[in-house]
């Protein structure tokens, strides 16, 4: 078998697992595939980030359709904040060439560790058999800016059996975090879902279900803003990006549809531990170099 075929199938299989594990843990495929490509397959960081951005666009576009149909995603909030995420993504894509490779590994490790916090909390809650408590800090009225921009929304919650209405506030702070989310996305080749959810859920007071859905909806546009730059710089290698995009897309569909029925908390704890180990390795690679 030729080297090319070996590398191609390796990328396809690894990306499938990255997509599946990512959706099982509530992470994007990008944040897992970039470390795997750079640490284990020794692929250049920018080539890995470019391929990952393509995978991020594919999974976001594929899953956003379902969220929009279920009316969980708030299209107005998404569109408004995409101004900031896409500006951030452009900044990130232009910065990546000016930042030393080791720094990128350190930043990536820190972002990955931060992204793992919500998943870790969820697993801990499951282990101690605590139902996740209601969300703090939701507002009964919209702030002036949120009202002017018609950012309020509602969705039907089947678990509660009723329609949940929500109002948003602290839009400027949320928007600032969105810019940072875009920056991380363009620089690291990830979807930055964790930061997007932070901005909407913790800062602006959007219910977690809507925040997650709106974040998924926004990720594709954010990634496209930097993917265009990577493409015109010739940093998207079609024979790396194609298997990664197809693999992550298939893996995340598999992870979303089939795995939750099979995988209990034990398997998720195991995968979680693996990703924690990978984040430490990313950090070490950044510190030690090589």
């Amino acid at each position: 078998m030729s080297m090319f075929l070996v590398e191609f199938s390796q990328l396809l299989v690894v990306s499938f697992f990255a997509g599946a594990v990512g959706s099982l843990l509530g992470l994007g495929g990008g944040i897992i595939i970039v470390p795997v490509m750079t640490l284990f397959l020794r692929i250049d960081f920018r080539t890995a980030a470019g391929a990952s951005l393509i995978a991020v666009i594919a999974t976001s576009s594929g899953s956003a359709a379902a969220y929009v149909r279920d009316r969980l995603a708030n299209i107005r909030v998404g569109m408004l904040l995409e101004i900031l995420t896409s500006l951030g993504a452009i900044t990130g894509a232009l910065l990546v060439g000016r930042i030393a490779g080791r720094t990128l590994f350190v930043v990536f490790a820190l972002v990955l560790m931060y992204s793992l916090v919500p998943t870790g909390q969820k697993i801990l809650a499951e282990l101690s058999h605590k139902a996740s408590s209601g969300q703090p800090g939701q507002s009964a009225v919209s702030s002036r800016l949120a009202l002017a921009l018609r950012l309020e929304g509602s969705y039907f919650d089947p678990a509660k059996g009723r329609t949940v209405e929500y109002h948003l506030r602290r839009v400027p702070l949320g928007a600032a975090i969105m810019y940072m989310a875009g920056l991380a996305s363009g620089m690291l080749g990830i979807g930055s879902g964790a930061f997007k959810v932070l901005a909407m859920d913790s800062v602006m007071g959007m219910p977690i279900k809507s925040s997650t859905a709106t974040s998924n909806f926004m990720i594709g546009v954010t990634a496209a803003a930097s993917a265009g730059i990577y493409f015109s710089r010739g940093e998207i290698d079609p024979f790396v990006a194609a298997p990664v995009a197809l693999g992550v897309l298939a893996g995340s569909l598999f992870g979303a549809m089939i795995l939750p029925k099979m995988a209990g908390t034990g398997i998720r704890v195991a995968f979680f531990a693996v990703i924690v180990a990978i984040s430490v390795q990313m950090l070490l690679r950044g510190i030690r170099g090589g």
């Binding site: 666009i57 546009v221 496209a224 493409f231």
Partner: peptide, 16 residues
């Protein structure tokens, strides 16, 4: 293959 990738990158553009 590149055409397929370009269409994928263009999808969010079209969505907007």
């Amino acid at each position: 293959v590149t055409l397929g990738l370009v269409i994928l990158i263009a999808t969010p553009f079209a969505r907007v």
